[in-house]
Design a protein around this nucleic acid. Structure first.
Lengths: 336, 336
DNA sequence: CTGTTAGCGCTTTCAA
DNA sequence: TTGAAAGCGCTAACAG
């Protein structure tokens, strides 16, 4: 049922070493032989067994990518960038979705490690990078995605989230808001903590308040939950602006404010999101957001990964950091 | 650098057969031995090499999933359902994104075939299923996802797209629209053709017209392009309703109508989308849509896949068909 | 309950 | 330029 090189060799009348050569180094084989072998391959419907290949060759041509939320368009864009860059380098990308859970993340790390991937791209769910450090020490290339590496253990591709938080709140201050709320969580996720830190710095410097409303995940549902809570509060004690840790939460807030309640955006509460996903522009009230170059993140991550794989343990671990950018829409400024 | 069972066996003072047993059939090994071996595994940081395992065992515990559009929330939901169901069965899911391209699809099919996946879940980009039939004949389980299998070659999990198209247009007729446009493409994608067929049947039966505006892909950008085209037409020659082949296109249409132009939704043009993605509810004008049970689709697909794997070639190929459901929002009915 | 042994399918020297 | 042979790390009989 399953055809092996041996049978191909038999049909082509050559040895199996030759078959392997036409598969991997066709230039080393006489053209006539190559053709004969390829005919045999086609006739038999031979498909090379990657497990055997990888076992013998010792190297793999797949890389793993673990994202925090497979349903978030930001991460599907990152994945898309990585996929394209990888494909052009002959690599395949296996995608794992940790769903912000360190256990799920661990499951995927194990899976990829057992598969002996050439490298791992990861947006870690927590702060414990010991597991990854071990991986890296054992020779597997690791690149942190959307997260700057503090130490020198990892290469990383990130966007300056502290700056992003600052930009968001500065914009809210600039349009005259003073009672600002930060909606997001869990704070174990670095992106959340950093965006909050930037927001707090900007608010404090301007003498504005920054209330924190914690969510258990960065999802539309959690945004809606906080939004409903907020619109039940008496109008006077509500914030006049919200900085959401990502667009999903911002969309949830809008759903609660506009569809279930009666909070006017941006008049009563202005909203800034984060990521600038494609749907931000199409939201009930088009969403002001902090744009990140998602696809570039994925592409760059593959670049660093490949460089590590090529140079082995002693590469200079690089840190690429992009700068986020404010995109103003009607959720903060009416009819621009 | 890389630790093998042999070294674990040496450290634990047992033979490597025993190590394999504690790894795969711990109940067959004396508890004391199990513990000794596990200590050795932990101490050495041994990670089992899946290539070797798979090569020897002949079976794989991963399945491939090829989706038409990795960026479409509908498919990320399908993937999520498949992932969850698979994980609970000890399977891992590799995801490939064909991006509606038959070439990209072929690349992934090859990749998965070389990896000897236990099975393949696929939303085919075209109508040529010969490649898949061969796979299936060679013993790889194949389940068509979001596409009913015509013949008896494949198991399939689908939603009745013809019915969906009928429901969408019937709704538009019921609210008094007569000049309806179908926006979607390419028609090589079965879902598009079926939704159109259902729409046409409903329109024809009611004596309404159904103009077809073709797109090159099912994306927000293509929807926006058609929307701009439409709003440039004199008001009198515009359709009074649009049925979009999916929500992405519908969102694009709204962007063009509302943000760039001056077409009032739903008064001048009513819009029905398809999939009922999470963002449909949060769109500028909340979108009426045809809901499909995306996660269930993924889950069921894994069920059928597993059944095929367990029973081999001679299973009854099952066809699970869900029925879509209309969700009415403001893009067709103002302030319900 | 534990150890020995024979490959899984492929790549890669090394000779011819 | 081609062929023969030696494993990669693991599992699964089969003996002991």
């Amino acid at each position: 049922m399953t055809v092996s090189v041996r049978e191909v060799a038999a049909l082509a009348g050559v040895s199996l070493g030759t078959v392997s050569n036409v598969l991997n180094r066709p230039e080393k084989v006489a053209p006539a032989t190559v053709e004969r072998v390829q005919n045999a391959i086609a006739e038999l419907g031979f498909v090379r067994n990657d497990s055997a290949r990888q076992l013998r060759a010792g190297r793999s041509s797949t890389v793993g990518l673990i994202v925090l939320d497979g349903g978030n368009p930001f991460f599907t864009d990152v994945a898309r960038g990585a996929e394209d860059a990888a494909m052009s380098k002959g690599l395949a990308v296996l995608i794992g979705n940790s769903d912000e859970s360190t256990e799920r993340e661990a499951t995927y790390v194990d899976l990829f490690e057992e598969r002996r991937v050439a490298g791992l791209l990861i947006s870690p769910a927590g702060d414990d990078l010991a597991r990854l450090a071990r991986l890296r020490d054992q020779g597997t290339a690791v690149v942190l995605v959307d997260r700057r590496a503090d130490d020198e253990h990892f290469a990383s591709v990130s966007v300056d989230d502290v700056a992003g938080g600052r930009i968001a709140v500065s914009h809210l201050l600039a349009i005259g808001r003073q009672r600002i709320a930060f909606v997001g969580g869990p704070f174990g996720i670095r992106q959340v903590a950093d965006r909050h830190a930037g927001a707090l710095a900007a608010a404090t410097a301007a003498g504005a308040s920054l209330e924190v409303l914690r969510t258990t995940s960065l999802s539309v549902l959690e945004g809606r939950r906080i939004g409903e809570e907020l619109q039940r509060r008496p109008a006077g004690s509500r914030p006049d602006a919200v900085f959401a840790a990502n667009d999903l939460i911002a969309v949830g807030l809008e759903q609660a404010f506009i569809m279930r309640g009666s909070v006017v955006v941006p008049d009563e509460i202005a909203i800034v999101g984060y990521d600038d996903i494609a749907f931000a522009e199409a939201a009930v009230v088009p969403l002001t957001s902090i744009r990140q170059p998602a696809q570039d993140l994925g592409r760059q991550a593959i670049e660093l990964l490949v460089r590590q794989v090529e140079h082995g343990q002693d590469v200079d671990l690089e840190h690429v950091e992009f700068t986020p950018e404010l995109v103003v829409r009607q959720s903060t400024v009416r009819e621009r």
